[in-house]
Write a protein that binds this DNA or RNA. Structure first.
Lengths: 338, 338
DNA sequence: TGCTTCTGTTGAAGCGCTTCAATCATTGTG
DNA sequence: CACAATGATTGAAGCGCTTCAACAGAAGCA
């Protein structure tokens, strides 16, 4: 049983194919009677338009390509939720893709989007060189989320990492901590800004920053924490570059026989669902990931509709989420461990 | 600057469009000279075939639809990895989609696959009624992963939940536990089989099963654990239906002032990355999720290529992953808590 | 009544590709 | 050397849809 085509609908409704096309797309040049007839016929036949044919004829797909960099990273689902919500509101379909393992994947995923002729592309936390992104941005509207980059051709949406770091550090300062170490994110997206926020806040409080270089992974967070504890400096609090590295630090602190937050306070970044697990209860910074995703889609559609052509770089305010890993330092806290 | 089309390539290579089409698809009726000329021309023009057009003409998309049920669930990435690997090997593209929040999403995602005319569909842990799945399965090859269902039209790939539960329970028995409670997964996928495996193993050891009903979430795991601890029965070990509910249980055990594994041993299921976090170190059961994904794609392609038409239901062997949440019971362990 | 103006509707062209019957060029065979 | 068989190439049809110029009929105006 062949799938019904637009001709079948036209025949059944007793009108021309052209009119069916217009009626289905809600053109206002169609009489109410015809429209009703077409809709009825389409419904009776359970007609589903052939997207490929539509795309081929119209040059539009009504589809947005979304690259979720690394499905394994618990940071992304919330961003995807925001993207989904905004796409639903505006009637766009989503074509998801993930880079999985290597960077070649990412490049191939981008090509796939181009091949599928998506109307626009959202890149979340892409690792690929910005040159490659801009090359695509010149052909198709592109917006980059969670990776600060200054570009004249693609839009970006980010949280204010510097402010987030300031909130985290400020929270620890307010609790009375003075010996705050920052486990940074190395060359990760936003890591530099977070470090800068931390350092500025410390200096403003008249304290000397204490940064241990790391990356946004659990293992590197653990290594960095070990290094920090071994260092010849007092330490009562750690602000980790993201939740994952905070988790690594948490384990090392435990292993050193210290309590969180009794001996050491700990703050993460991203507010992934792991931070929210009751067993963890990590104080952290929420970027406003859903909002990030929504803004991305909105920016994209502005471009698609031709309402804007210059690049826009949006920054949203993160918020602090206080849980159970932060507390005032112990009275006897001027101590060095190691 | 217009995108180059096949005609452009044909002109440049000095052959007909038909020949370009055949050369590009690797037909063996093309002479080496022509093929080389076509390939060179395509490369020089940076030609990318228009998928919509190709599909419209050929009725094939070379694309598999993959529904990842709930991007938030850490169970799925590994399955997706396997799917990805197998698809790469066989040259198929992937069209990801996720159900995000509600069940309507899931239905719409399926429709999107049909509209996009994917060649086959992989459903991981779908919640939608099996009738709806079979309806689609009659039009397009469908394979369902991580949801046991007997069907004459769609294939299924699952781990042996019953065996997995037997491994988990057996591990606890071997350690010397006798008072083992099972926090089950309610109506979740595979929950019934896991419960059955647990019960059978207990009975075989001459012990009375102790099941507390729950669901596959952290919160319900916590509630169930609280109930189990309150019960008027001794308890030295808990086998939770999945990692998430185990995490909930972990928190409650902690809160009750009991140690894991000193006072209570704990086993999960799924081996999500959370279980592997050093700070958690949960003993759990690995389903072989990547393999699950690979098998799914292989089954799908068998159908697409027309090599098979009857439904196949494959089951793979799970393995136990022992970490730090299980240990022999304390000598003085015949005790009831609460 | 004759003319213009709308409003709805249609036929036909065309999107970029695949496919297949038909054609042309070679080579092999008796 | 004629003819069949094989191999390489092409023209044309067609996939299911959109779009647009052209048209028919109803309504408005003088």
């Amino acid at each position: 049983m062949r799938k019904p085509t637009m001709d079948d609908v036209a025949r059944r409704a007793g009108v021309s194919r052209a009119l069916v096309s217009m009626a289905l797309r809600g053109s206002d040049r169609v009489s109410d009677a015809s429209r009703a007839a077409v809709l009825a016929a389409a419904h009776e036949l359970d007609y589903r338009p052939n997207l490929s044919a539509r795309h081929l004829a119209s040059k539009q797909t009504g589809t947005l390509g979304v690259l979720i960099n690394d499905l394994h990273n618990p940071y992304f689902p919330a961003v995807a939720d925001g993207i989904k919500a905004a796409a639903d509101r505006t009637g766009y379909r989503l074509l998801l893709n993930s880079a999985f393992l290597d960077d070649g994947d990412e490049r191939r995923a981008l090509e796939a989007f181009v091949d599928h002729n998506v109307d626009g592309i959202v890149l979340t936390g892409p690792r690929v060189a910005s040159g490659a992104i801009e090359a695509i941005g010149r052909m198709t509207p592109v917006v980059v989320v969670s990776r600060p980059m200054r570009s004249k051709v693609v839009d970006t949406i980010n949280n204010d990492d510097r402010l987030g770091a300031t909130l985290a550090t400020g929270h620890l300062l307010e609790l009375g901590h003075q010996h705050i170490c920052h486990i940074d994110g190395g060359r990760g997206a936003g890591a530099a800004q977070r470090r800068a926020g931390y350092e500025a806040t410390m200096r403003a409080a008249g304290l000397e920053p204490f940064v241990v270089t790391s990356a946004f992974t659990e293992a590197s967070g653990a290594a960095a924490a070990a290094k920090a504890l071994r260092a010849d400096r007092p330490l009562t609090a750690i602000f980790a570059g993201n939740d994952l590295s905070a988790l690594g630090a948490l384990d090392i602190i435990d292993a050193a026989g210290l309590g969180v937050p009794d001996d050491v306070s700990l703050v993460g970044y991203d507010n992934t669902f792991i931070a929210a697990l009751r067993h963890i209860g990590l104080t952290t910074v929420e970027q406003g990931r859903e909002r990030l995703g929504e803004l991305a889609v909105e920016a994209l559609i502005e471009r698609i509709d031709g309402r804007r052509s210059e690049a826009r770089h949006e920054v949203i305010e993160p918020t602090l989420v206080v849980r159970r890993t932060t507390a005032p330092p112990k009275q006897s806290s001027r101590r060095s461990v190691g």
